[in-house]
Nucleic acid binder design. Structure first.
Lengths: 337, 337
DNA sequence: GTGAAAGCGCTAACAC
DNA sequence: GTGTTAGCGCTTTCAC
């Protein structure tokens, strides 16, 4: 292994000079810099991560807690995780992957061992057990998601409440009066996951405001569940002319089932989704959708973390404004028949 | 922050004693051990990761390289990644997440900086640019996937060649003579990704052996691509009575399209998939499938890594034997009509 | 069965 | 603009 001392010897300078050349924390003459850089290059020197962490009290690692569950849309999770990793690298940080099932204990472990300088937490519940620890921590923490009480926390999330309202507003504007909201899996609500509850709140508030009826049904992301859910919806509200889908995995099955019932989209019924753009575009009928900006959320979480680590205290929470893209999936409500 | 010295002082012993109590590397009297453990508990001591890595030359971190691409089935990737993380934790290791797009440079960085003790690499191409570095490394590396030349490497993978053959054998045994193989995205083949090419090889070999015809078509995982692919298949081989699907995202669209064409599954056509069991089970028609054992692969990769780190040299590659589960998706070929 | 002490490789005062 | 040096918190000889 090549050490700082090796480089210093090779370049004919002291160890601290090498360190300063690398960190840029003091001015170095062009000649010295050149010699050091040449030696670094020639020897293939890389600072020892542990030594750097010990001496500099900075591990250059950000811990990322990813849920282990399968009832939330998995591709979104991976996309966020990869966006976090890419953004972190751009700032010189690596990412430590933690599984959500370790819960609060993982938070303690990471904070206690200084293995990471900061934490990003996904899949936040409204009253999450990890929140007290994260609030009390001396190391920065950023949530991707919004708990019931975000006081003292930095959060990054889509404004799901506005997203829900936006869907209802779009459909109400098209003349729809009976809307079904096909939500996430029941477990998502049982855990009081922030995004699910907030979307529902936004949908309901907008429904009142626009004077339309909304029927909410949680739904697993498989064909059989969607079929059962659709059956129930059409039984209870045969006049339903529009669907809002929050479960990405349910969108395509829903379209297939509507087709089977000879309900044309968007002539007979409209379908609006809350999902990443690529999912909406690739559906069998391109769906009007409110985008879940996974990459953006990951990037912003990292930026908030890095800002905090650099002593620029992050300014509270970031709620990304939703944006609705109209595609083939939605159209005017059919004339009442 | 609580240090070893703090614990030593609190327990009235020397620092080395505390260290030995924690590592179990020398015999300690019951009384001393109890006092130390009490202090550790009381003070909430956690060893400093960097210091431990520096002094012990072991970071207790395993690096995991996950592809950033979206043309391979994402849920499988996340499932493997989470399985790796869970298994690693069980052995006392944390996982560092690397994106595949960093390529060989990431391998150099990790190896040079001692940030991780070993590496697990996913999404291996037949002639992967990272292989020479991984072979030359002094730190253990395990591939999840099988390159063209696995010499000097430890690999863990499903035996995709046998998997492909198993699918064909199953269908041939049911009397099918014209089989379509709906493969992964074109990009997967262009990159010469190991699993895709090997499955195809197995399918072709088995087809020759059983005297059946196979038409192979790469296919993206969205509705429109599957529709186009199905059109082409039925145009070129109208007598096709069975489908093998390797692209998980294509399975449900294919079923929907067959339904639209009034082709009943499995009465008129059979569909067999190579995918994780849950995908096969949740399809609109539960599919006969060869399981991609994501969790098992992740676990075994970690075991190989840990064995190597513990000085038990891993014994070459592990090719997991495929296993086919018959579900509603496959049945006897229809009588030639 | 336990302690003392010498590093591990780096950073950051403190000197000049 | 550069060098000297004292640690960072831990592991592991060596000594008793």
């Amino acid at each position: 292994m090549v050490t700082l001392a090796d480089v210093a010897r090779d370049a004919g300078v002291s160890a601290s000079t090498v360190s300063y050349v690398l960190s840029g924390k003091r001015t170095i003459s062009a000649a010295t810099r050149a010699r050091v850089e040449r030696s670094v290059e020639r020897l293939g020197y890389r600072p020892h991560a542990g030594a750097r962490a010990l001496a500099g009290s900075r591990s250059w690692i950000i811990a990322l807690m990813v849920p282990l569950r399968t009832d939330i849309h998995v591709p979104v999770m991976l996309e966020i995780a990869m966006a976090v990793t890419t953004a972190a690298r751009a700032h010189g940080y690596d990412v430590l992957l933690l599984t959500g099932d370790e819960g609060a204990e993982a938070v303690r472990r990471v904070q206690g061992s200084s293995v990471a300088d900061a934490m990003i937490v996904m899949d936040v519940e409204l009253d999450d057990e990890r929140l007290p620890l994260l609030r009390a921590a001396e190391s920065p923490a950023v949530l991707i998601g919004l708990p019931a009480d975000p006081t003292g926390l930095v959060c990054v999330d889509l404004d799901f409440e506005a997203a829900g309202a936006l869907c209802v507003g779009h459909l109400a504007g098209l003349g729809h009066r009976d809307i079904a909201f096909v939500g996430g899996a029941p477990g998502v609500y049982e855990r009081h996951t922030g995004f699910a509850e907030r979307t529902l709140a936004g949908v309901r508030a907008a429904a009142r405001e626009h004077g339309v009826r909304v029927l909410h049904r949680p739904c697993e992301g498989n064909y059989a569940s969607v079929a059962a859910t659709l059956d129930r919806i059409l039984e209870e509200r045969p006049g339903t002319t529009a669907y809002i889908v929050q479960n990405e995995a349910a969108a395509d099955p829903l379209l297939a089932l509507l087709r089977q019932r000879r309900l044309a989209v968007p002539e007979d019924v409209s379908v609006v989704a809350v999902c990443p753009d690529d999912v909406a575009e690739r559906a069998s009928v391109p769906l009007t959708s409110v985008a879940v900006p996974a990459r953006d959320m990951g990037r912003r979480a990292v930026e908030a973390v890095v800002a905090a680590l650099d002593g620029r205290p992050a300014a509270g929470s970031v709620l990304l404004p939703p944006s609705l893209t109209v595609r083939a999936g939605s159209g005017p409500a059919p004339a009442a028949g």
